[in-house]
């Protein structure tokens, strides 16, 4: 059997150590694939070809299978997200209370539909199945923070504030991303 520890990470980026740790903890077994992809996405914000290939090699899973798994689950994203992520909850309670209007509003103001990022990389719009804030419906998770009882208009203001606050400064931490589910 090949020694799985000998396959080198794509770069000396420290985040690969986290990925490596997840695989080691699971004995480099093929069934650790989804767990490992979670760690990659948590660390890097998304899954690119290089990381998929690396994980495939390490866990001895065919690369096509890794790609198949990564694209089957909507939680994983293969594209980098914008600096700000606006996740509109489309759970039943939020739908009943008008989530669709919120999505339309983002589209009207920023020209993006769920799953898209503005060309300047400032804002990504995603939909989430249910953030569990059904009592606050309709809910929006903006950069990891839940805003409840959103009304059109109010939402635009929140978005504007968020985007203006950082301007072109530091991207928002990727730790916010696991809370949203790109579609």
């Amino acid at each position: 059997m090949r020694n799985q520890t000998n396959i080198a990470a794509p770069s000396d980026d420290k985040r690969w150590k986290l990925v490596e740790a997840t695989m080691r903890r699971n004995g480099y077994r093929p069934d650790a694939l989804i767990e490992t992809l979670h760690t990659v996405q948590e660390s890097f914000g998304y899954l690119d070809d290089e990381s998929l290939q690396y994980v495939a090699r390490k866990l001895r899973v065919a690369s096509s299978q890794v790609y198949g798994v990564a694209t089957f689950y909507h939680f994983f994203t293969l594209k980098p997200q914008g600096k700000h992520v606006c996740a509109v909850c489309t759970g039943t309670a939020c739908y009943i209370k008008g989530a669709e209007k919120l999505i339309e509003e983002v589209h009207d103001n920023y020209g993006i539909t769920p799953g898209q990022t503005t060309p300047d990389g400032e804002l990504s719009l995603v939909t989430v199945r249910c953030v569990g804030a059904c009592g606050l419906a309709p809910a929006v998770v903006l950069d990891g923070e839940t805003h409840g009882n959103m009304k059109p208009g109010q939402m635009s203001k929140e978005l504007e504030t968020a985007i203006n606050k950082t301007g072109s400064a530091e991207p928002v931490s990727h730790t916010a991303i696991p809370e949203v589910m790109p579609q």
């Binding site: 767990e35 992809l37 939680f75």
Partner: peptide, 23 residues
């Protein structure tokens, strides 16, 4: 084991496939 956003994984056999790291 973490799910990753697939309603169908509530179905037993799909859930087990997912625990095994597959689609």
């Amino acid at each position: 084991r973490l799910g990753a956003g697939a309603f169908v994984c509530g179905e037993e056999t799909a859930l087990m496939a997912s625990v095994e790291g597959r689609r």
